[in-house]
Amino acid sequence: MHRYLRTLARFWSASLAAEMEYPANFVLELLAEVGNLAGSLFVLSLLYGPGQSLGGWSWNAALVVLGFYTLLEGLTSTLFQPNLSTIVTHVQNGTLDFVLLKPIDSQFWLSVRTFSPWGLPGMAMGVGLILVAALRAGAVLGPGTVAAAAVLLLASAAILYSLWFVIAATSIWFVKVWNATEVLRSTLVAGRYPVSVYPAGLRAFFTFVLPVAFLTTVPAEAVLGRASGSWMAASVVVAAACLVISRAIWRYALRFYTSASS
């Protein structure tokens, strides 16, 4: 365990140093994040006419959902996406072998190897938006609420991580998986809005097929102090299942790699 933590610290300090070689990225990414958030806020404001509600959510409550979306998108650009592209590069260049020969869990290595600081402002904006909007919506952020929200945020991060990692794992067969990530990204956009906004069919899809509901709506409910026990339990179960599945798919991919690669 200690070794894994030390390795993680080394991984991240090395990636940080590598990213610092391109400081112009910071300004560009910050601009992009701010622009995206401003655009999302603008569209959300269009969806709310004067005094109206969206899917039973007040303006401030919906902002909490948008806050979680921004936070998770920041996390994606900080961790999930850079590591996915590293995995794809490993498979393309055949350097996956080096990773497999290290005395450390390969899924751990491939999931946290790189770290891009440019998603951090997005994450900070997301947290800020969640806090401001929740307080304005009249939420009481007691220890129970914060703990529940933290657990559900972890669950949603685990679900999102699994989705990305499974796509990364399929690169062992398909090598080029960018299109698949584009499909994922473009569908996850649905998480910008509370899931109750959507018509029944889409709502079912975003709950049972692509668990968008658990990514943003459920944690937002928790912050607003109105999460139901069954939704929270379901969220944790879905997260655990996603992690187990991602592990199983990775092991299967490795078995394929070691028996079929050349």
């Binding site: 109206q52 109750s196 906004v197």
Partner: peptide
């Protein structure tokens, strides 16, 4: 997706 959102809104 936006069609889904807009149809759930009165705006």
């Amino acid at each position: 997706i936006m069609l889904g959102v807009w149809s759930g809104s009165g705006a």
